[in-house]
Structure formats: structure tokens, C-alpha cells
Amino acid sequence: MDDSRIIELLFERREEALAEIDQKYGEICHRVAHNILNNTADAEECVNDSYLGVWNSIPPNHPEQLLPYVCRIVRNLAAKRYHKNTAQKRNSLYDVALDELEECLTSPESPADDYLARETGEHINSFLGTLDKESRVIFVRRYWFSDAPEDIAHLVGRSKNYVAVKLSRTRNKLREYLRERGVNI
């Protein structure tokens, strides 16, 4: 079933829309949640909560693309649960991915405000537009989906080493990109 039909079902308040979403995007939703939470039961619960979030938000929302919309809800809920649960235990793929980015986004002088985060987010978006598709996919799979490098290697049909090197170079480029634009990190 295509996304527009699923959205129509949601507008008609028909619950089979959620079954369709689960069938179509359940796997990647579970992956996103599990990568962040590193716990199958928590991930399962998070995905179910996300479906409820989709049900409650469509309507009124009418997303142009259903997949990123659903994934984003999953990611937000998983991140919220992660920050609530943890902080002490840093053992998920999400932690490792954040550690890597911390190296290029953190400085002792960073002003701690949401504005900076939003501004940096916008710059990251425009930076991604400068990359070739494969580099961009590798970056997003690593830092948005928190996928492990070996899984990304499998996805893009390259070696783990290739992915690791690509990520390292992309992070360096990002650091330069932000510096050139005067982003105070």
C-alpha cells in the first residue's frame, strides 16, 4: 500500500493504517529504537508508542513523506526515553555515534543553548547537501539512525573500513564547514 493511501486511512481513523505502517516500516522503526535504547523490550514499547504518536498526530498533520515522519517520532521517543533512563550507562550504538560527533561539534566555549543546536542542525543539513549521495547516506545512517558501521557497510555494499574512513573524512569536512561559517562550537 502506498503512503498516500495509508495517510488517507489515518484521516478516516481506520486502525488498519497502523498495521500497514508496521508491515511497511516496522523493521526500520525497530532498528532506530533498538540502536538508541539497546534493549529489545524498550525498543518494542517505544515503537508501539510511536504508532500511537502517529495515530494522534495524523490528522491534523499531513506529512509529505510518511517514512521519515514515522522514523522521526520513533527516534524522538527513543531519545527521550534514553535520556530519561540512562545517562549513567553508555552502551548503545547511539552513545558511540554521539561520541564520534562530539569530537567535531564540541568545544569548551560552547554556549549551551537550543539556538546553537538549531543553527548547527541547519548547517548540518546544508552541509549534507554538498556531499555525494553515498557519503550522505553513510553519515545519516550513522548519526541519525545510529546504525553500526558494519551494518552500514552491508547496506552500501562496501567494507567496514571504507565506511569508517568515509565517516572520518566526512566529520573532518563538517568541522571545516562549520568553522568556515563561523559557527561557534
Binding site: I28, P63, E64, Q65, L67, P68, Y69, C71, R72, R75, N76, A79, H83, L98, L101, E102, L105, T106, S107, S110, A112, D114, L116, A117, R118, T120, G121, E122, I124, N125, L128, K133, R136, V137, V140, R141, Y143, W144, F145, L155, V156, G157, R158, I185
Partner: peptide, 28 residues
């Protein structure tokens, strides 16, 4: 920038790129 803010910055990656990465299939 704190880890939570990094998370927030990365969360702002556009739908276009998220969808692209989610649906990516490697060239043979």
C-alpha cells in the same frame, strides 16, 4: 555543546535525507 544538544542538532536532519538513507539501496 552537550551531547543532548548534539542529538538535537542531528535530529534536525531533513526528511529528504532521512528518507534517502532509509530507502537507500547500494548500487550493484
Amino acid at each position: 555543546m552537550t551531547r543532548q544538544m548534539i542529538c538535537q542538532a542531528v535530529a534536525g536532519i531533513s526528511d529528504e535525507y532521512v528518507a534517502e538513507a532509509a530507502e537507500y539501496k547500494a548500487k550493484s
